[in-house]
Design a protein around this nucleic acid. Structure first.
Lengths: 112, 112
DNA sequence: CCGTATCCGAAAAGATACTG
DNA sequence: CAGTATCTTTTCGGATACGG
């Protein structure tokens, strides 16, 4: 049992780090198999991908589905609980977009 | 110039890490001086606090105000731009609260 | 195809001491 | 009171090789 001082800390614990928000974003648009996610996340290693997915699974946000066949096929999708996090992701995506446009404009009339 | 694949990455760059969201949350409720923030953030060191505040200042989210006196007095507050990030913080706070309540219930009827 | 294990370097974070 | 500088520790992320 952890003692948080603010509830936002619980959120950070679940979606913090370099990759989890990105993964969740991609799963928002539908079920993906491992190799698809890897392609959608340039720069991620197999290890990090698996690791982050395990974390998300443990927290109940993501559901893992293994097809018993050779070669293996594994799919990931958002759980109902996982979908409840969409408002956060959407807000972050939206703000990020504005932020980039802002930065773009500022380059236009830079003083030097 | 960075090349992001998703706009959410820009957001993560700005508010990522262990402390920035917490700091912004506290500044949402009004101007705070350094020592106040330190008290509001149990576990943070002077170094981390200053460092994170500098980052936020550089990104234009926080405004730093130095009173020229002895002993020194420094206040921090959200800029207008900083306030635009509130929807994200609020969503995170809200979800975290629910998440903690959820975890609470699950402890009640754990299967083993 | 998917996942694990191991090793390694970089970066984050913490402790401490010092300055204006 | 606020901030800086330095050092150590810990964590995170990446490269690689291997296994089912």
């Amino acid at each position: 049992m952890k003692g948080y001082h603010m509830s936002i800390e619980a959120t950070l614990e679940v979606i913090g780090g370099k990759w989890k928000c990105l993964i969740l974003c991609h799963l928002e648009t539908g079920t993906k198999r491992t190799s698809e996610l890897k392609n959608l996340l340039p720069g991620i290693t197999q290890k990090m991908l698996t690791q982050q997915l395990r974390d998300l699974e443990e927290d109940g946000l993501v559901i893992r589905n293994v097809y018993k066949q050779v070669p293996p096929k594994v799919e990931y999708r958002l759980s109902e609980y996982g979908k409840s996090i969409s408002p956060i992701l959407d807000a972050m995506c939206h703000w990020g977009k504005d932020h980039l446009e802002q930065a773009e404009k500022n380059r236009g009339h830079a003083k030097a």
